[in-house]
Structure formats: structure tokens, C-alpha cells
Design a protein around this nucleic acid. Structure first.
Lengths: 245, 245
DNA sequence: CGGGAAGTTGACGGGTCTCAATGGCCGTGG
DNA sequence: CCACGGCCATTGAGACCCGTCAACTTCCCG
């Protein structure tokens, strides 16, 4: 729990060209919606799987992931979350949270009261439209991952994941000097790609020997992005400026 | 192309308890948005993969599926579509349609002009909220499928798919006397579950021998739904009435 | 120095894939 | 009426990708 709260107006995310600008009126409304700022450590639960918090978050800093598990413990990571991503929208719709969200790094979250979501649509339809944008965009990412898990080979999946994480980190301002933070261990990768831990390790070692990328000190660097893209048949689409709530 | 157009007010879908009621004003607005009714045969493209139509549809009757393909032809079915489902929302957000949509049966569609989507949010925030609801609900279904493909065994995946299709057909008024239409062949199942055609066939024969379900004349009947559910560790959540645009 | 988390490696078995061939059903045309 | 082709389901054989089990190493941190 942090004492000083950053006003939305001067939110550092809003300086990135990734995000669309908002009017002063919209910013004031978003500011009013904001309940508090939450800081969590790496490895904490942001949303409990199957639980209900009634809260809606925007990830301000750090990385996280959405996941679901079967009763015997098999876990599937649905997608990774980056600054600007909305957390908890599905809970506003289903009665219980169908998935969990866990932090991958220390994170900073902006917390809204979920009950106010409808007010947002009523008073600022444009922001409602933006939320739909974010929901559809996240679904698009899940679609990508599903194509991967269903139809790509292990090495293609890993290549795809590396490109995806790199691009998203770059867009959300987490990268610097050509390398992106990579707080994702091999168990995470296995769970995200539908592979076993052991096979993930062997495949990553194989890919590493090709010299297309490098992971050092929890940072990822793509050395031959073009080759990786062709290997995975994966080309992240360019995006117009995305909304930020 | 059909001559007589059903007024939204007397749309047969609206009689199902699955769908939430709308006010007269909302109905009038939806009606005004409606551009035309489209009828397509089984196996036709509703949305081209990678193309752009600018249109938004609601599926009124029949079944379809969303899919993506890799360049060498490997195909992944992302989810199946039932009456009441929205088609083409992602295209309103990305520049090009990232996925294709193809009909599984003869279908009837309600076509809207995509450009009017923003007007809908502006004039009827409640309907905007409903569209977010539909987007989040579809993402939830994709999440389900992803858990399946990533972490369930072949036989569990098929059990899960049978339950899922049965439930959704039931909710959308396609079922009768305890059986649901099943216009899905083994190639579709394979592509939906990330399996090969041959292995899908062998696994389905194995499941069939257990006597938990029956597929005859393109209709599906669940004989021991409870056993199937436990086998797949899959329990479709009860839903509140869903919106219909 | 001890202990736990994460990464690495080998051996082995099995689930799933590919290739190939066959049979059933059905609409079309001779 | 029958022959034919096309789509779909089915089945067997063999290969390989990937999962499981188990052991070991490395690194980090207390």
C-alpha cells in the first residue's frame, strides 16, 4: 500500500506513444473512479481462481499472467499481462472469476470499484467503447496462443512466445536498449505452451544453439528476429494507439 | 437474400429465456441498425481470414465456427458459434480480420454496418455494455478451449467438446427432445482440439464404446452427462440471461 | 555452509502423428 | 438400374514427438 498516488493525468504510461490520448473530462472521470493504488510482490495472486473480488484493475507497472487449472493441478497459462492491460473484466460478467491472475514481477495496479463500470458506460460512452476494445484485443491474443498450442510444434511455439513477449514489452515501455525484461521461467513457458517442463527445457536449449536469441539476467534479446518470425510463422500486427483506462 | 425480414421485435430468439429483454427504445434502435438479413449455405465463408468486410453480424439461426490457419495450411478452430453470437467484432478493432468464420449449417445472419458501432455506444450505453458482455463471454469460451488443448488428454478434450456443444445448442434453442444438432465432422473436431484426424477418429471410437453419448444422423445425445463431465473435469457455468443485439 | 528453487540431462515409454489403404454413403450421370 | 466419384469414417503399421521418472548441477540467499 503506497501513500502517494500518481494522478492519472501524469501517469507515466500516458507518455508512451502506444496509448491514445484522453480528454481532460475523461481523465477526471477515470481519476474519480480510481479507488486506490496497489503494490504487490512477485508471485502474488491478483485475482483468485474461482473467487470473487468485485474489483477491476489496470496494470500500471510490471508483468503478470492469467491462468486456469484442472482439479488435478494441471495448469494452463492463458496469456501474459503487460502495463495498460485490464484485469478482472470477465469477473464483472461471470459470477465467479473463471481464471486466476498472478504477478510475475513486483507490480503496481490501479484499482477501480467494479460496481462503477456501468456508470462509466453511461457517462462516458467513449470509455465504454475503449473497454470493448481492450476486451477484443485480449481475445485476439488468446486466439494467437490457441493457434500456437493447437497447431505449432514445440520449437515454433517457443519462437512465437519469445517474439510475442518481446513485442509487448516493447510496446508497453518495459524495454530498454534492445532487450526486454523476461521474468518468465521454464515452468511458466511450459504451462503457457501446453508442454512439459522437461521438453520445454530441451527445446529451448535446441533453439538457443541456433543463436537467434539470448536470455541473460532475466532479460530477453532477439538477435535474428526475422528468422524467428519465419520459423514461427508469426507476425504481430501493428496496432493503432490503444486505449488506457 | 431473403425478401421478408423479421422485425427484431418478433425475433424468435427473443422468446428464449436465455436472452435478456430489451426496452422498446433499444429494440427500435437495433432495428434501425439492421442493414439486411443474409442467408448462407453450409460451408460458406461468413468472414474471410485476413480480409475486411466492415460488417458486423449476429448469428440468428444455425451454427458456424471461427478459425485461423498457418501458412502451410494447419488450421485451428477457435470456437463454435451459436444463435445470438456476434460475428466480426474483432474486425472493428484490428484493421484486418485476424480470423475467418465459416458456416457449419445453413445460417441466417443479421447484418449491421460496422461504422455505426460507435453510434450505438453513444446513443445507448446499455447496448455498448452488452457488447462488452458478449466479447468477454466469447473470450471465456476461448479460455476454456485453450485449457483443453493445452492440458487435457485427447479423450478428455473430446468429452469436453461434446458437453460444450450440447449445452450451447440447448441454450440457443437448437435442441429438441434431448438431442442437439451436431453438424461437426471429425476433421472439425480434430482442428478444434489440436489433434490429428486419425487420432481423433480412434479416440472417438474408444469413447463411443463407453456408451456415454451417441451421435446419429448428425444429432448428439448425452447418455451419461455426469460421467462425461467428471471425465473432462468440465462444468459449464450457469449464465444469467445474456444480451442479444 | 545448508537448503530450496530453477535449470539440465539421460533413459524409457507412450500418446499422438503420418502414411496408406479400405469401406460406407450419397448424389450424379450414363 | 448401375457405375462412378467425392466426402467422410475407419483401421493398421510404423515412426517420432513429447511426457514421465529420476538424478544431478547451478545459482541464490539466508
Amino acid at each position: 500500500m503506497q501513500l502517494e498516488i500518481v494522478p492519472c493525468r501524469s501517469c507515466p504510461l500516458r507518455e508512451l506513444k502506444t496509448f491514445a490520448r484522453n480528454s481532460d473530462a475523461q481523465l477526471a472521470f477515470i481519476q474519480a473512479l480510481k479507488k486506490q493504488e496497489v503494490n504487490l510482490k512477485r508471485g502474488e495472486q491478483i485475482l483468485p481462481e474461482g473467487g470473487r473480488t468485485g474489483e477491476l484493475f489496470t496494470l500500471l507497472f510490471g508483468m503478470a499472467f492469467r491462468y486456469r487449472t484442472l482439479r488435478d493441478g494441471r495448469r494452463q497459462i492463458l496469456n501474459f499481462l503487460f502495463p495498460g492491460d485490464l484485469i478482472g473484466l470477465q469477473e464483472q460478467i461471470a459470477v465467479n472469476s473463471p481464471h486466476g491472475v498472478e504477478s510475475l514481477t513486483d507490480v503496481k495496479l490501479c484499482a477501480f470499484a467494479g460496481e462503477n463500470l456501468w456508470e462509466l458506460y453511461r457517462q462516458h460512452p467513449r470509455l465504454g467503447y475503449d473497454i470493448t476494445w481492450l476486451a477484443a484485443h485480449e481475445e485476439h491474443i488468446v486466439d494467437d496462443n490457441m493457434l500456437s498450442i493447437g497447431r505449432r510444434t514445440a520449437i515454433e511455439r517457443i519462437a512465437m512466445l519469445l517474439i510475442h513477449v518481446f513485442k509487448r514489452a516493447e510496446q508497453s515501455g518495459l524495454s530498454s536498449d534492445g532487450s526486454a525484461p523476461f521474468p518468465i521461467n521454464q515452468q511458466h513457458i511450459a504451462d503457457a505452451l501446453g508442454l512439459s517442463l522437461v521438453h520445454t527445457n530441451k527445446t529451448m536449449r535446441r533453439l538457443e544453439k541456433l543463436g537467434l536469441h539470448r536470455i541473460e539476467n532475466n532479460r530477453l534479446r532477439l538477435l535474428k528476429a526475422g528468422v524467428l518470425q519465419r520459423m514461427a510463422d508469426y507476425f504481430a500486427m501493428p496496432l493503432r494507439a490503444r486505449p488506457l483506462i
